[in-house]
Design a binder for these strands. Structure first.
Lengths: 247, 247
DNA sequence: CATATTCGGTCAAAGTCAATCATTTTCATT
DNA sequence: AATGAAAATGATTGACTTTGACCGAATATG
């Protein structure tokens, strides 16, 4: 990999996350500690980031105004999501034709997707951007662009989906209920989820334990139609379900 | 293989991937290290790419040191681009169904687009994002996502375009020539430009004066097929053309 | 205060570079 | 066709750059 390429990737990761450790960069860029250190020193000298003990942070964000408690709470949820995402990403095999739904839960998958022999389709432009940066082959759905969630939704997207037949699909959800299935608050998003799930041979719903026994406005798929990947799910009612993978 | 052919291929690969190593090029073009080095040196001298240790990167993506001259040139062009963009944006009327091409020139339009009664379609996700933030109704093309330019390109996008009939379209270009028409360095991008122009009732090409009498690898439309919006165009040969709007 | 991690400098190995030169190809002129 | 000048190519070389490992010093952590 070219030096400049590494520089670009380091800056890209940094812009996205705000901070990065040397260890993370070693893993992400697949290079030695020495090289990462040299890169950080160079980029710091160039004024493109601020080197700190252990890694680097964004130039302007040298001061930390971040509430410790908020971080901690976020971290707890994060851990569960990371475990789920890691497992899910591992399911992607060479030759797979994969749909990745928009959403924060599926976003965690991106870091763990290593399979370059698969073709990925998504309706989330941030996902597409990051996957493409990693060197994955990415297709994006056409259709109406929704500003808030930065996802493609609506009729046009559904129509595009019509012709795809995915081997695997990964989805987020707002609610899981045995009677009401998987549900989400937004109709036009639900339409896309529904159609894409119909066109996947294997469907996986990624959900932390807080999503169980929740019901949102629109159901996009029945409970049995997907394998649920979760952690720490202790609720009685779901214990005996065949399609729950409690990691 | 012809020297010019190699040049075109190198630039094309670079356009697509953003960076390339000497080793990659040796394999791809099936030629010696010496030749590749000479090519890169020539293209660098020509200002068509930036040579770095190990290979080359896109001209604008130079990370190591910021070139004052480049910034200055960009600023000079900026003023012209603003004028052109402002005029072009004013052409969008209520009820229009508008295509906006990816590229820096068209990006300037976004700030000036005030018409909320029009539907906008684009293949650039950055444009889509910014337009949606402004509250415009935006559709995005489906298809393969190209990391470097952050645009949707290729077959799938062309197919999606097939069914649209735009009232107006706004395009960027790398070269304008009376004989060779409008041209751009990347084939897959050219395919999208070509198809979208075919499906517009009125086509506008936005171009600062530097684009005239330039020819890039792939022509995507004949010279007469669009109205050219420009400023400061003083070249004799183009003075009498009916389809040039010299602001 | 003890322990673990991170840091920056040094070194050898690997990779990359520009220059040189012999060979091949191209092409206008005979 | 034959000739020779000019251009392009590929191999070689020594100089230079980048890389990853190592290690003692510096810094964070409990």
């Amino acid at each position: 990999m070219l030096t400049e390429e590494r520089f670009a990737k380091i800056l890209s990761i940094l812009e996205r996350t705000g901070s990065v450790t040397v260890q993370q960069l070693m893993a992400e860029l697949n290079t030695s500690e020495s090289t990462i250190r040299r890169d950080l020193t160079a980029l710091d000298a160039n004024g493109q980031l601020t080197k700190v003990h252990g890694g680097a942070i964004l130039k302007n964000a040298a001061y930390s105004t971040i509430d410790d408690e908020v971080i901690h709470r976020k971290e707890q949820n994060r851990e569960a999501k990371e475990i789920i995402a890691k497992y899910a990403a591992g399911l992607i095999k060479p030759g797979d034709f994969v749909y990745i739904d928009a959403g924060t839960t599926t976003e965690f998958m991106i870091d763990y997707i290593t399979e370059k022999q698969a073709i990925l389709v998504t309706n989330a432009i941030t996902h597409a951007k990051r996957l493409a940066e990693k060197g994955c082959k990415v297709y994006i759905l056409g259709g109406e662009f929704k500003a808030v969630t930065e996802a493609i939704v609506g009729e046009e997207a559904v129509e595009t989906l019509e012709k795809y037949n995915f081997t695997k699909g990964f989805f987020g959800t707002n609610g899981i209920s045995i009677q009401k299935g998987f549900s989400t608050p937004e109709l036009r998003e639900a339409m896309v989820k529904k159609k894409s799930m119909e066109n996947c041979r294997e469907c996986y719903v990624l959900a932390d334990s807080s999503k169980f026994n929740q019901i949102s406005s629109v159901t996009f798929a029945p409970f049995e139609s997907a394998t649920i990947i979760t952690t720490d799910m202790k609720q009685e009612a779901f214990q005996k379900c065949q399609n729950i993978l409690n990691l």
